[in-house]
Simulated assay, not measured.
Amino acid sequence: MQTDAKRQPLLLIPGTLCDERLWAPQIEALGDRVEAFVPRLDASDDLDTLARDILDQAPWPRFSLAGLSMGGILALSILRQAPERVERLALFNTNPFAEALERQALRADDIAQAEALGMTRYAREVLAPLYPAEGDAEDPEHTKLVVAMAERGGLDAFRRQAIALRDRPDASAGLAAITQPTLVLCGDGDRLCLPSRHLYLAEHIPNAELVILEGVGHLSTLQAPAAVNQALVAWLDRPASPEI
């Protein structure tokens, strides 16, 4: 894949059961300045192996890297494995810690529930209600999109993603070694990945800028596209990390 010299390569990693449609507002708005690529997330139930597969999919030797939720966790794994390939890092709605023991125990229940309900009902009845900011009603268009992405991803991919998240390593110890210009962004109403996680990220990554969006939940790229786009433009304007 040949990148236009005037356009920056940008690897966008979606979250669990999401695809390129999670990033559609950013791809459309930034199309004049970035060459965007969104990888598949179905190759493995091991997080680091999945990250290596994403590196193999990436069509450029170096790129700016952004991930949301599971995508942010994968971005941190990519950075551990191949820091020389990453020019900038953006972490959206991301938890840098290993899965809590009590949450680990519930992953099998999540998979069993998805198997029992099917992906359409599981996405509509279980996942979509978790994504708006606390106290907000669901946006019907966002719910429809969450369901469509889950249907496309399918049950097998969900099983692998759930296991990868359950068994993921703790990434917090490596944050101080990150040298790339970093954007940390979340909504203040995110119930799945609390703002406190992002304060931790911003405090422990040396070159990080923190953006907290008021009234926004877990799917910030869809729920506040204009604000996210503005933050991404400012991030892309920061000088890239030098080649190692």
Rank of each mutant, 00 (worst) to 15 (best):
P242L: 10
P242H: 08
N229W: 03
R21K: 01
L10Y: 10
A226S: 07
S77A: 11
M70F: 04
L106R: 06
A150S: 14
E28L: 12
P9K: 04
D190N: 02
A234G: 06
A202K: 02
A66Q: 00
R121W: 09
R238E: 06
T16H: 02
L89A: 05
N229L: 01
M149H: 12
E214H: 14
E35Y: 00
P181Y: 03
P140M: 07
G31I: 06
L222Y: 00
Q8L: 14
M149T: 12
A108W: 03
R121E: 15
S196Y: 00
R62K: 04
P25N: 05
D56I: 02
E209G: 14
E203K: 10
G217E: 01
R238I: 03
L210I: 13
K6R: 15
I73K: 02
D19K: 09
D45G: 01
Y200S: 04
R21E: 00
Y122P: 12
D46K: 09
S44R: 07
V211Y: 01
P206R: 13
A98C: 04
L201D: 08
A164C: 11
Q81K: 11
I244G: 07
L47K: 05
G154F: 06
R33V: 15
D237G: 15
A43Y: 08
Q113Y: 00
V126I: 15
A173W: 03
L130S: 00
H142Q: 10
A43Q: 12
G189P: 08
L201T: 11
P140V: 11
I163A: 05
